[in-house]
Amino acid sequence: MGILKKITGFFINVFVLAWDFGLFIINILTPSLKPGHVVPAHAAGHHLTWPEYVPPKGDDSRSACPMLNALANHGILPHDGKNISFKELNTAVRQTFNFAPSFCFFVPKFSADFLNRSYWTGRFDLAELSLHNAIEHDASLTRQDAALVPDQGKPDLKLVDDLLKEATAKMPDGSPLLTIPDLSRALSKRRKDARKTNQAYSENLFHNIFGSSNSSTMLTIFGGRITDLTPMLTEERFSEQWEPRVLSRFGLTMAKFNGTVLPVEWGAKSKTAEH
């Protein structure tokens, strides 16, 4: 059964990558969505109006991912963050953040696999996604390492503040804007600090790429805008009249996303090497 599962997984991954590349090409050939019309008409957040934000309470389950926590805090996913289906997660992420369907299948499927559950029938609590060194990893830009702070459901406000202060660019209205070099520099600093403070620190290429990927959503989905990132990273809520900054008709594909992720990771490694 193990061999069959591996073979099946291989062909699923090949299909998803082909599907993703096809959507990447289609996005190039089709007109973009108009600002103000990115979230579908039948979904929460359409016309830039989001459901009420309610902070987590009591035993509500939250993950190491601010964006997923925001979905629960706004009631787009169950507010208690529990008993969520992987297919439900797929739909909520796709409609809310305008990730491509291929992307929204791949990540929940990966999550189901590392939790040893079925993507098609399985369910999970948000906190379970913080399984160490699966998607959650050391040297996060918004969380202390799990060895130091086991509960990954809340942001570390000092780390978030350090990150937001890295922004060097400006929007036309003068508000700060995070760039690829800014994010690379922040990742490099965070990794160096984590190595010093966490005796159980672990790092490999997979985790670094995942770290750069998680961080790069700030540049793609949020456009690097500090005014939008501040409430998302500190309170895990959407700013008023927010919408995804990706206007591609079929959403942000993995192929397109890599155009941000790889320069961010390369820059982080380069800055580490300089020291």
Rank of each mutant, 00 (worst) to 15 (best):
A127F: 07
K5D: 14
S61R: 08
S118M: 11
S184T: 07
E88Q: 14
L178A: 08
P181N: 03
K82A: 09
D182W: 02
M254L: 15
N98K: 09
L89Q: 11
L115T: 00
N98T: 01
A169M: 02
E203C: 08
L187P: 07
T197I: 10
T49K: 12
F110Q: 15
S118F: 09
L159Y: 13
D138I: 00
A41C: 09
L129P: 02
F114I: 10
F250P: 05
W50T: 06
R237K: 14
A43E: 07
S32R: 05
L262R: 07
E240W: 08
E236V: 03
G224E: 08
G259W: 07
A72N: 03
S111H: 06
K271M: 08
I12D: 07
P176A: 06
F15Q: 06
S239Q: 14
I226V: 14
R190S: 01
T49M: 11
F24C: 08
P231N: 13
A200V: 04
T253Y: 10
I7E: 09
S32L: 00
T8R: 13
D80L: 09
I221P: 00
H207F: 01
S102W: 05
A273T: 02
P55S: 14
F114L: 15
L115E: 05
L148R: 05
A200H: 06
P108V: 06
L4M: 06
R237N: 05
E235R: 15
N83G: 13
D182E: 05
F124D: 00
L77G: 00
S212M: 11
I209C: 09
I226N: 15
S213Y: 15
M254K: 04
V14W: 11
A70N: 12
N133P: 00
K57T: 15
A18N: 10
E166A: 10
A72W: 01
M67V: 15
R237H: 04
I226H: 08
G36C: 01
K109R: 11
T168K: 09
K196N: 04
V149A: 10
F105T: 06
V160N: 07
L205R: 13
L164F: 07
